[in-house]
């Protein structure tokens, strides 16, 4: 039974990732080219949120050359995102640029761009449509959004294995402690599945998993830091094939009744034109996160 469950878990993850790499010819084509289509409410999985991201760097800016400095200006942006997974496996996405106060503004002294800006992007099927602030179509491109049919199947399995009440409660509160048994079982069987338990304490566990367990074509590994008290992942690190750290990510959650994701902090070394390295830090604030599974 244990092996069966673990096999199922690994298979789910594998299929989830593999589903991103299906041949483009397999792309489903539930195309709907109408602008301003309300995407939420149609899919087996729906997620929407506002994300405000600030990007900055950690270095001694005073010693950088003009060229290096020109590539590390701070920036800030806010976008509203709606993603819908349809039963066919098609992923639709709508991204809308949002304005906000107190935006970081570099005082450039050049003439502004007078051409219309893309304010909204809709991905339906394998077509991306770009719209200006008035909803006027500015352009279209083909785009290889992979089909996620296998993910749909696995989501349906969740519906079969767990009660509607539990699923709805979890989604409504974004609290996963009631499923801590799943995690404990996973930890107990980790070595047999090539997952290394690095450290384990009362509240935290860190696990190391090679990506080739997910997809043989991917090198490197991830280390997950999981807070068992809330049954949530609070951090990850990504290592390349040579075991060099390439990225650290930290997740923060709201407190209270609805403990949804509220913060993502990503740190990654990046190269400047001169070849020297600096740390790029992006901090995203997640607001109005809505997640739904339509499986019952």
């Amino acid at each position: 039974m244990k092996n069966k469950l673990l096999f199922s878990l690994i298979t789910f993850t594998t299929l989830f990732i593999m589903s991103c790499k299906q041949d483009l010819n397999d792309l489903s084509n539930e195309t709907n080219n109408a602008s301003n289509v309300k995407l939420v409410g149609l899919g087996i999985m729906e997620i929407s949120y506002d994300m405000k991201t600030i990007r900055d760097y950690e270095t001694d800016f005073s010693i950088l050359s003009e060229l290096d400095l020109s590539s590390v200006n701070p920036s800030e942006e806010k976008q509203h995102v709606e993603m819908v997974l349809l039963e066919s496996g098609q992923l639709n996405l709508t991204i809308t640029e949002l304005n906000f106060d107190k935006k970081i503004n570099i005082p450039h002294e050049i003439l502004p761009d007078d051409s219309p800006k893309i304010m909204k992007t809709e991905i339906i099927g394998n077509t991306a449509n770009f719209y200006d602030i008035n909803g006027k179509l500015l352009g279209s491109e083909n785009i290889p959004i992979p089909n996620h049919r296998e993910t749909v199947d696995k989501i349906k399995e969740i519906g079969n294995k767990f009660s509607a009440e539990d699923i709805n409660k979890t989604i409504a509160t974004m609290q996963g402690y009631q499923f801590i048994d799943n995690l404990e079982e996973f930890i107990r069987n980790a070595p047999a599945n090539g997952v290394q338990v690095l450290e384990q304490g009362e509240n935290y566990v860190s696990l190391r998993m090679s990506f080739n367990k997910i997809d043989p074509r991917i090198q490197g590994a991830s280390v997950l830091l999981i807070d068992k008290s809330i049954n949530k992942m609070v951090g990850t690190r990504i290592y390349d094939a040579q075991d060099n750290l390439v990225q650290s990510v930290f997740f923060g959650y709201n407190k209270g009744d609805v403990q949804s994701l509220s913060a993502i902090r990503i740190e990654q070394q990046t190269h400047l034109p001169s070849g020297s390295e600096v740390k790029m830090i992006s901090i995203s604030q997640i607001e109005n996160l809505k997640f739904n599974l339509n499986i019952k």
Binding site: F12, T13, I17, N182, I214, L224
Partner: peptide, 9 residues
């Protein structure tokens, strides 16, 4: 919550 390996993904 349901499938912890999903966190690796």
């Amino acid at each position: 919550f349901w499938f912890p390996p999903c966190w690796a993904a």
